[in-house]
Design a protein around this nucleic acid. Structure first.
Lengths: 209, 209
DNA sequence: ACGCCTAACTAACGCCTGTTAGGTTAATAA
DNA sequence: TTATTAACCTAACAGGCGTTAGTTAGGCGT
């Protein structure tokens, strides 16, 4: 979804997929099939090159998957931050939280193979690769904690919520969507609205109305 | 956690781990390390036998993992059903839902390597193994749908909730706990209370009190 | 004492994996 | 025209995988 359209040749050879092309394909395969069943030969075949050629662009399989994981977090992080900062300055707390939820879910479902691949395979990759991805993750988590703390301070949220727990619960819920979501049965935006409704107001029928 | 204590020999030979022993160890390793990095040789070594010997008890690796997956759902299903039926007959809807949530989380965290292994590796196993596990899962899902429908009918829940979506969101949230939960930082029961509070009442500060 | 059965063992098989070294092509720069 | 270089290919490697076949050891019922 990134090449094939416009000015084909201006870099070097005629049909070079290049480092970014390999990475795009790796991310897609990881998202679709998980980590364990995607070999370098599968990636190479999907990219139209031979397995050994991948080592021109990357030093190891770990390096590929680490690059995919990092890009996945960066995309959703930017997406979420932009969604919040794009709001009018006088937007209320509820609106801010809804925007953040929607942005995360969009990145996961509609936008990025990198983000969905990250969520899907993070628990399957070697420990060293997970560790390498941690700083990027922590930065994104800090963004959420900062947002939630703000909402707590300004009185939007209940005063007894544990920020860390709430963040883990929120992101956990959003990410779990990947296990069952079917684009044919609904949109990411509609789902994000449901999520926000439940998180903000709960599912209990209320007496007072 | 099942042998090693009492009357050692009463079946056949001296140190037989047996089919159940192999299964217990497989479940534990799958929970700890995921599917891809647990080989038959690893399972065998942990069980104190040789890889080939596993084929006395199982016809294939798929058969092992399928048995683990099925047992995982059965355990959490029974756990959840029992928790609900053990309540007093006049328990209100909120109490019922809280009990179900607690039971699911307990099975996941405190009780069963089988259940946690299921959640952890389901997305990593071959399609055929996933398919074999589906009927068992559907039965558990139906139990939840039945419970939630009841709560909706009796007015405990809002009338506009989509049962299927709510169930997917709930179980997704609970299962996602496995990715980050640390028993040293809190108990499953305390966490289940937080979950129930958020799902039932939401996190928004309310004006009316 | 006998043979049976359970539960293991040994040794090997073909396959797939990540990885490496060295060779080839084609476009660009001098 | 020649040299350079980016991007790929070919062929092979050692190691791990699931799986199989044949064998062995010990407790049990008869």
């Amino acid at each position: 979804m990134a090449q094939n359209t416009a000015i084909k040749v201006n870099e070097t050879s005629r049909s070079a997929v290049g480092r970014d092309g390999v990475l795009d394909i790796a991310a897609r395969l990881f998202r679709e099939q998980g980590y364990g069943s995607v070999s370098l030969r599968k990636i190479a075949e999907a990219a139209g090159i031979k397995a050994g050629s991948i080592y021109y662009h990357f030093g190891s399989k770990d390096e590929i998957v680490a690059a995919v994981l990092d890009a996945g977090i960066r995309v959703v992080h930017e997406s979420m931050r932009d969604a919040v900062t794009d709001l009018r300055a006088d937007a209320d707390g509820e609106t801010v939280l809804r925007a953040a939820i929607r942005a995360h879910l969009r990145a996961l479902i509609d936008v990025s193979d990198y983000t969905s691949a990250n969520v899907r395979i993070f628990g399957q990759v070697p420990q060293s690769v997970r560790d390498a991805n941690l700083p990027t993750r922590r930065a994104y988590e800090a963004e959420w904690d900062s947002l939630l703390s703000q909402l707590k301070k300004d009185g939007t949220l209940k005063q007894d919520v544990d920020i860390r727990r709430l963040r883990l619960m929120l992101i956990g819920t959003l990410n779990a969507t990947l296990d069952w979501f079917d684009p044919d049965r609904g949109s990411a935006d509609a789902l994000s609205r449901t999520y926000a409704d439940v998180f903000l107001n709960g599912i209990l029928q209320r007496q007072d109305t």
